[in-house]
Computed example of a mutant assay.
Amino acid sequence: MDKNGLNEDTLSKYLSISLGVMSLLAIIGLLVNSRFETTEVLSSIINLTQVAIPVFVLIFTISLRNKSKSFLDVGTCALEKVQKKYPDRLQGPKYFRVNYDPEKGEGLKYLFFSYDSKSRGAKFVPVQNLEEGILAIYVQKNMLSWALGWGEGDNVQDEDIKKIQIEVEQAVTKLIVDKYKGFYEKLDDNSKNTAIIIDFDENKMGFNKYEKAVYECVETAYLAIIKHRQDKKK
C-alpha cells in the first residue's frame, strides 16, 4: 500500500486507462483533421485496436488476480508486513506447534510476540478468523512472562495483565473510531486472554482497506505492549 492508499495494480490500471483515453482522443483528432478519409479511418481503427487490447488485457488480468484472493490472504499479508517491520519481537504467522504438518490436521496459526528473535513466542494474533473479518488481539500471562521479560511465577499478576489489556483496547479502539467508523463492531469475549476482538465488515471494506485496517490495529497493539518490556528475568 502506498501513501495514497493505491496499490500497484490499481495505479497501473488507472495509468493504462488514461493513456488509452489520450490515444483515443489523438486518433479522433487525426480523423477530424483528415475529414474522415477512408484510408485514415482504416488506419485509425488499427491504431485504436493496438491501444485497446493491452488495456483490456491488463484489466482482465487484475480482475482474475483479485478473484483468486481471499480475506484470509490479505489479513495474513497484513500480519506478515507488521512482522517484517518488527522482526526482533514478532514471529510468524506460523503454526503453534513446532514442525507441525498441516496435512495431518487443520492446526492453528498465530502471529507471535517474543522477547527477541530467538526466544519463545507468546500468542498475539490468531490467523484463521481473519477470513470472516474477525481480528482478535491477545494479551496473556505468557506474553508478559516470555515476551516482555517479566519472568515466571509471581512476577506476573492478574492486575498487570488486565492493565495492559485495557491499554491495548483503548489504543486500538481510538484508531478504529477515528479511521474505520461504520466498518466494524467490537465483540464481547469472556476469555481472560483477549484484549480486544473486532468484527470488520470485510466485504464492505474490500481487500485494500481491510488489509490496512488489520495492519494498523496490530501495529497499534504492538506499540502499546512493547513499552512494558523489561530486562529479562529468570
Score class of each variant (00 low, 15 high):
K227A: 11
D101R: 10
S34R: 11
T61I: 13
R65V: 05
E211D: 08
F113D: 00
G121D: 02
Y14L: 14
R89F: 15
T76E: 04
F112L: 14
E131A: 15
F183K: 08
Y115S: 07
M143Y: 00
L90T: 05
V172D: 03
E8Y: 13
L79F: 03
E106H: 12
G121L: 05
V21N: 11
Y184P: 10
G153L: 05
I198V: 10
Q230C: 04
E159F: 12
I45P: 04
I46M: 08
Q128T: 15
D154N: 13
W146I: 06
S68N: 11
N47Q: 14
K234S: 08
L108W: 11
P54R: 02
M143H: 02
T194W: 00
A171T: 12
K212F: 05
P87L: 01
M1P: 06
D116I: 02
C217G: 07
K141V: 01
V218W: 00
L19Y: 05
F124G: 00
V125Q: 06
Q83S: 12
V57Q: 08
F71V: 00
S44A: 15
Q165M: 07
R229F: 10
E216C: 02
L108E: 15
G20I: 00
I196V: 11
I53Y: 15
N193F: 07
R97W: 14
G153F: 03
F207H: 06
G121F: 05
Q230V: 04
V156Y: 02
Y222C: 01
N208Y: 10
S43E: 06
M205A: 01
R229T: 11
I166V: 14
R65S: 12
L79I: 00
V125T: 09
